[in-house]
Design a protein around this nucleic acid. Structure first.
Lengths: 342, 342
DNA sequence: TTGAAAGCGCTAACAA
DNA sequence: TTGTTAGCGCTTTCAA
């Protein structure tokens, strides 16, 4: 036997027809016990493995979903994946994952590849919410669920986190601790999370009658380096803020490094809350307060939405989930001496 | 047009044969300019996407490799993935990733699935180095590269990190700092990394004429909790060690938490080096010294090995790479006051 | 430069 | 309970 054995070879060896073999490998029943055993033995001996390709050609579904994330090295996405896979494996779906490195060009390639493979659906955190190329998903009629970032060009099921609310809660917390000079390290304002978190910041100030001071608003680009620079900028203000809110995890890390370098003492001279949990949060002293996003749950919901969509296609209205992030209050949002300089 | 358009539809619309369309979508050349343009237009208008399944049936390769990791949430593996994908995309290979959660049962399923899909090769960090089920890989003749953990049942290309050397260097470093009472938090001794790192520890002690003190050898299971417990055990010894070596990242984290809880002051009362880098390393004070593994490079090498193997199959001897980990010396391996109690 | 036609391995409808 | 058979959509000779 030179080549890979196929269903023919199994049938021949077992002395039955290929139809019967097919029934056995698909557990469809209606096969006599002895026959089945004969076939199983043949499969065993030949080392037969059925071809997914041939199977996919006959059936329209593949029991496979594609997941596209922007950065597999950001711990959020593995967590998201875990949530998705949990639900997927319960339903006997297989998951294939690709990372775009935040590149729309790569993302487009991945989408095409997934489409060629005939995935039953796609869960995506897109690298470009405005991407024209995303329309191919609609054109092809593939079920899609957008996670964490919406898709602008057409309407899809979406699972988002309430950025406004999360930022609001964080800033509110700082205000309630007595802070009035609160700096924000913003994310890019052309991105939804960047913008929305800033809106939450504004809203909280407004609700508590604190006028917005432009000098406390510093821009970052969600990178660690920008968090570092921004923190330094805030520090060198003649009238330093007494509290800082950082708009994402990487900038939080940059911020912590800057604090250390500047000897701007966390919890003593400056309070802090960051958006997104970070591993280091509980290793700093004081421990960092953060706004945490339930990524695992988001993954579970995303798969559930996708699964429904796969089975009901058009008959379902588009659903939009907006999950509330959780404010985890540790110590960094209060001053050690509970005295806030005015 | 109800169903998905196929190559037939494109051919009809463009007024050519399917063979010509095939030539165009595969960039095989030998098609007149005008004809090609006609076909491109038809593809565009129809929104045609070629079926990977049908294609795979005719060709023997899929230009796809499968990657199996035990825990996608452990930051090593995303890094490994990144290295693999980097090289893979250069060669126009597509990567599909699955995580086993350290479960051999899931691993077996994933392997079958990859095999059914006809992946051209597999890169795996197995959940069970002794797994019988791994033999199917050999039987099917799929090129395999084992990463970070070897495969016992048959011979494959392998990329490992020199655990003995890494642990040796770490312990040697502690010894050179003047420590003689060095505790080790071991990993499970039935796992290769667990065992080898312990061997490195033993060797270093031996080379420097320090007798092995059993009470300084504490067992963990690579989990954070076990690192915590083990540290506590070492602390409560009547004759505490003056330095601790932890066998992996999670246990290092547990160890740090325990140090904090026990008020066993890092760098003052106890020196420390851990195997594996951790995010928190530079946020602690003193900063943690660690043995770091070049996972990205490992990924690159793994893909390269696999690629060679795919193209030369049997004609290649099995290659074993053993990469040296790097000892990153920060501050935690020395005592602040440079005074080591004897 | 183009086309006709033979499968690749499988599923499922139909027949026996 | 089992077998026969018609494709699924594509690549790839071989011929024109």
């Amino acid at each position: 036997m030179e080549n890979k054995p196929n269903i023919q070879d199994v049938a021949k060896k077992a002395g039955v027809s290929i139809a019967t073999v097919s029934r056995v490998i698909n557990n469809q029943g209606g096969v006599r016990r002895v026959t089945e055993e004969k076939i199983q033995r043949a499969i065993e001996e030949l080392g037969y493995i059925r071809s997914a390709a041939a199977r996919t050609m006959k059936r329209k579904d593949t029991k496979t979903i594609g997941v596209i994330v922007p950065d597999i090295q950001n711990p959020f996405f593995p967590l998201l994946m875990a949530g998705i896979e949990q639900k997927a494996s319960e339903r006997d779906y297989f998951t294939i994952l690709s990372s775009t490195n935040e590149s729309p060009v790569i993302e487009e390639k991945i989408i095409r590849n997934f489409l060629e493979r005939g995935v039953d659906g796609i869960i995506i955190t897109t690298a470009n919410e405005d991407g024209e190329y995303l329309k191919v998903l609609e054109e092809q009629g593939v079920p899609v669920v957008a996670v964490d970032r919406s898709i602008k060009k057409f309407d899809v099921d979406t699972v988002l986190v309430d950025n406004v609310k999360g930022a609001y809660q964080a800033v509110q917390r700082l205000i309630l601790q007595g802070h009035r000079k609160i700096g924000i390290i913003r994310g890019p304002q052309h991105t939804t999370p960047g913008l929305e978190r800033y809106i939450g910041y504004q809203k909280a100030l407004e609700d508590y009658g604190i006028p917005l001071d432009e000098s406390y608003v510093v821009d970052g680009d969600f990178s660690e380096a920008s968090g570092y620079t921004a923190t330094s900028e805030l520090y060198h203000l003649r009238d330093k803020p007494t509290a800082v809110f950082s708009s994402n995890n990487m900038m939080t890390i940059g911020c912590m490094k800057a604090l250390d370098a500047l000897d701007w003492r966390l919890g003593e001279e400056v309070a802090f809350i960051g958006f997104d949990d970070v591993d280091i949060a509980t290793f700093l002293s004081p421990k960092l307060s953060v706004v945490a996003r339930p990524m695992y749950a988001i993954g579970e919901i995303a798969f559930t939405l996708l699964h429904d969509r796969i089975h009901f296609k058009e008959d379902l209205p588009k659903r939009k989930y907006l999950l509330s992030p959780e404010l985890i209050t540790r110590q960094s949002c209060a001053m050690t001496d509970s005295h806030i300089p005015r």
